[in-house]
């Protein structure tokens, strides 16, 4: 299991209810179910991945987060996970609001567009950046709303969303992000992992 999922799993308490939005082939869900006694549900857009998840005995629904999150009642989960898909939505703000409606806490990870390799690609090559976490060309990428760790940090304070935990990931190493080191982490990290909660 990749490092990002290990960090997410550590952020989640045992014996809870979790919704994994964009659960892919269900690796994280299966881990949470088997190792932390977590009652998991998944939402996944790819039919092929849904097939794989069903074959693992996971409760996964084929659907699109922007249309299908609304079917889940308020606070029906303890946690909701959104791994590296926020940037692919038409309306990321609405999705974040929906996540914090269906669960108390949300774990959101974003590929950091502020990472120095991304910046230098655009600066020196003058073409849209292609990296390990952003592998597609500009004309076929599903990403619509790229953001940086700093953007997401600022978004949360502006929208009165409580940042419970902010973790920077770079080459398997993790570190905490805070106001003091924000600019540095925004430059040096490939991925941002955020545990957020409604302030109200």
């Amino acid at each position: 299991m990749k490092k990002e999922f290990k960090i997410i799993a550590q952020l989640i308490e045992n014996n809870t209810r979790v919704l994994d939005v964009g659960c892919g082939d269900g690796i994280l869900m299966k881990y949470l179910k088997d190792n932390k006694n977590i009652d998991t549900r998944g939402l996944e857009i790819s039919k092929k991945n849904v097939q794989v998840c069903i074959g693992k005995g996971l409760a996964v629904i084929e659907g699109n987060a922007e249309k299908d999150l609304q079917q889940f009642p308020n606070l029906s989960f303890d946690y909701v996970i959104l791994s590296q898909t926020l940037q692919a939505f038409y309306n990321p703000e609405k999705v974040i609001n929906d996540l914090l409606r269906v669960a108390n806490k949300a774990i959101v990870t974003i590929p950091n567009f502020g990472y120095w390799k991304v910046r230098s690609h655009l600066l020196f090559k003058g073409t849209m950046p292609i990296t390990k976490n952003l592998p597609d060309e500009w004309y076929n990428t599903p990403n619509l709303h790229m953001c940086t760790i700093k953007d997401f940090f600022n978004f949360c304070s502006k929208k009165r969303i409580k940042l419970y935990k902010s973790i920077a990931l770079h080459e398997q190493k993790t570190s905490n992000i805070n106001k003091m080191n924000l600019n540095l982490k925004n430059l040096s990290s490939e991925l941002g992992i955020f545990l957020i909660e409604n302030e109200n």
Binding site: R41, I61, Q71, S76
Partner: peptide, 18 residues
């Protein structure tokens, strides 16, 4: 049906086959 099952917190999977 899927939506109703989700509302009742049931364990439900769903797929639309091509």
């Amino acid at each position: 049906i899927v939506i109703a099952l989700n509302s009742s917190g049931s364990d439900v999977g769903f797929i639309e086959i091509n």
